[in-house]
């Protein structure tokens, strides 16, 4: 029992789940009802954090300085392109999804081009790319909300027995990413680059190719998020991705992925996503003023990261 507990404490993802459970219980006790409903809502909204968080996690795992700041604008662009191609008809769903994914991959490849061909630091490269991507989204969408087809809207919002279907998509993607990271040459190469890029290259690994593919993967996952989010919230709007800039990084760090690269924690992304949603719900339920909410959000996140990091150092 104690050995199992010690094993659990040492897992990088355990702290984010523990934090999620605590804020969930506090909110449920404070409200006096609705714990089940809160969990359903957390799964529904956590889905979007998880999907973009997985992409950000793989990029961050590449090592210091690697980050994708174009996620918000890619969400906006893919959402708009997807919904435009679908044009509100169920028949357009498959081509619409393919077009959105292609757009996401294109943004990811463009980012990689800036980072690896032009040698621009990733923070600057992906941020500059995001201005261009956002402008294209504005040009295509014209600032109008583009409605999803009914079948896709149903799929994105349905939650039979309190289990959102979209969360199953996120779960499948998480399992896939975990498997790829742990069991494939691509995944092992990502970790190897994060641990020591030079050593990875000298070991004969396809360092550049894998790094490029990683940015493309992040773009594709942002596109999945964009299509799901547009379907979930009644249409693709320009500002729907804005909040995912910082939260995509937050779920990665809180989830126990090493910011220095080399070690990913896909399970932790789930704990962190549920935690972030439930934290806001808890603070809203407790009814603090805006200033107190922000201070508490900052303190709690610092606390969770310190707890997770501190245990590992010991």
């Amino acid at each position: 029992m104690s050995a199992r507990l010690r094993w659990l404490v040492r897992q990088p993802w355990s702290w984010s789940f523990a934090a999620a459970i605590v804020v969930w219980l506090v909110a449920a006790v404070a409200a006096g009802q609705g714990a089940g409903g809160a969990l359903t809502a957390a799964l529904a909204f956590g889905t979007f954090y998880v999907i973009v968080g997985l992409g950000q996690m793989v990029v961050v795992t590449l090592g210091p300085g690697n980050v994708d700041l174009s996620i918000p604008s890619t969400i906006a662009l893919a959402g708009v392109i997807g919904m435009k191609v679908m044009d509100g008809s169920n028949g357009g769903i498959v081509p619409g999804i393919l077009a959105a994914l292609a757009a996401g991959a294109a943004v990811g490849l463009a980012n990689a081009g800036l980072v690896f061909l032009l040698r621009i630091p990733p923070i600057v490269a992906t941020l500059s790319a995001s201005f261009i991507v956002q402008s294209i989204a504005i040009e295509i969408g014209g600032g109008l909300l583009v409605k999803p087809p009914p079948a896709l809207a149903w799929f994105a919002t349905a939650a039979p027995l309190g289990l959102p279907l979209a969360a199953l998509v996120a779960l499948a993607l998480s399992l896939l990413v975990s498997l790829v990271l742990a069991r494939t040459i691509f995944g092992r190469t990502v970790s190897a680059i994060g641990q020591n890029r030079r050593a990875a290259r000298l070991a004969g690994l396809q360092v550049n190719l894998v790094a490029v593919a990683t940015y493309a993967l992040s773009g594709v996952l942002s596109a999945v998020c964009g299509v799901l989010l547009a379907s979930f919230s009644g249409g693709a709007s320009l500002d729907m991705g804005v909040e995912y800039l910082l939260s995509s990084i937050a779920v990665v760090v809180i989830g126990g992925t090493s910011v220095n690269g080399g070690r990913a924690s896909p399970a932790g992304v789930w704990g962190a996503a549920l935690f972030l949603f439930l934290l806001v719900s808890m603070l809203n339920t407790l009814g603090f003023g805006a200033g107190t909410r922000m201070v508490l959000t900052g303190l709690v996140i610092i606390g969770v990261i310190t707890a997770a990091g501190g245990e590992r150092a010991a």
């Binding site: 809502a41 909204f45 805006a290």
Partner: peptide, 21 residues
């Protein structure tokens, strides 16, 4: 009282978060 940032998706999330209770 929740904060929606004048953004539909944020407002939806904030309301969905408190509604069960």
């Amino acid at each position: 009282t929740v904060y929606g940032n004048w953004t539909q998706t944020v407002a939806q999330k904030a309301v969905a978060g408190v509604l069960p209770g």
